[in-house]
Design a protein around this nucleic acid. Structure first.
Lengths: 189, 189
DNA sequence: ACCTTAACTTGCCAGCGACAAGTTACTCCC
DNA sequence: GGGAGTAACTTGTCGCTGGCAAGTTAAGGT
């Protein structure tokens, strides 16, 4: 499976996505350069365009991967714990462990927000998130359930975003999940 | 005060910041071009560098302006209502009304996060926000106050960020403040 | 063996950010 | 009121980038 043949890379698409995630985690999505990714993968400067069309196409693919990974993580968390609080912790952990994906996912100006595959992946994440509210000990009435969903989504998303932006810079323990749990718990008291 | 003299613009720094806010609101911070700003202001392509040094310098100035505006808005809200809930609504409204500033403020990879003036403005905002917790009817004990601050900040920041990213796309009323209030209220029940 | 097509490369162009060096105009001080 | 000094811009250039066009190589089906 380890290929170094001259012309065909063999797995360039995945290699470029991985390189993009690494580069974005280092310097942010604005500083991303397709030519730099090509250099990291050892291919010519126009190779990325073949797989993704243009820069927005590559970031669309990255966002799709991110939304699918998030949906997977939330589904797994719900199966194992059945707790909305723990799903929230999972959300925050996902953001920290997939920083580059997360940053791109919620900046739709960077990619094609109407791409069908992207819409499907985003809907998967939204469904996984909202299904968590029904697992509450005292599920709210239907007309209030949506507000509770938005509150839960907002608090975990806000915590994750602020953490990533360095707003909590020196305080709090190093494990973001443990730091988030007592904060998220405030919502359920 | 309306100047059109050839060489000296008269208020180029402010004009560039305003043009930057407009451009970012349209196409996002990644697509921002100093040369485009210069064209909008009717000056040469190198004029922005004189006032801001480089692109990061301009975005630093925009972030400083944003943090100061946010601190002003939060202070005014606290004086008028003394309610943490209303301060939260103010936070969300600020994000919607100053979209470009807000997006830059919480993406420190775009600017110089150690700039002294920026640090001061950011601290002003943080202080204005945390002082709101002490206005609660039942202020929590000191060791729990910080968790409550983080929860409040997280929920309003998450709601604002998700709204701006289009995550709530078609649902909810058009006034973001009214949409946010019942969601934020979930934290205080 | 051949033909189609996918996976790349090479070469090019315009736009961008940054820098250096020059030009204009305001301000202050005598 | 007239320089001197400096702030506010301009012009010119460089290397880098994204995107396009046209060519080259390999893989896979028949």
């Amino acid at each position: 499976m380890t290929e170094k043949r001259s012309y065909h890379h063999g797995d360039l698409r995945r290699a470029l996505l991985a390189a993009a995630a690494e580069a974005i985690a280092e310097t942010g999505p604005a500083a991303l350069s397709l030519r730099d990714l090509a250099r990291r993968a050892g291919v010519s400067h126009a190779a990325p365009a073949h797989h993704f069309g243009d820069k927005a196409g590559l970031l669309t693919a990255l966002a799709i991967e991110g939304f699918n990974r998030l949906a997977d993580a939330l589904d797994a968390s719900r199966e194992q714990t059945g707790s909305l609080l723990e799903s929230g912790v999972t959300y925050v952990r996902f953001a920290a462990d997939n920083r580059a994906h997360f940053e791109v996912m919620f900046q739709p100006s960077l990619y094609e927000r109407d791409d069908p595959e992207l819409v499907a992946a985003r809907d998967r994440s939204a469904a996984a998130l909202s299904s968590g509210v029904s697992t509450l000990d005292e599920p709210p009435p239907a007309d209030e359930a949506r507000k509770t969903e938005l509150a839960a989504w907002s608090i975990v998303h806000g915590f994750a975003t602020l953490w990533l932006s360095g707003a909590f810079f020196d305080e709090l323990e190093s494990d973001i999940g443990e730091a988030a749990r007592p904060v998220i718990r405030r919502l359920f008291e």
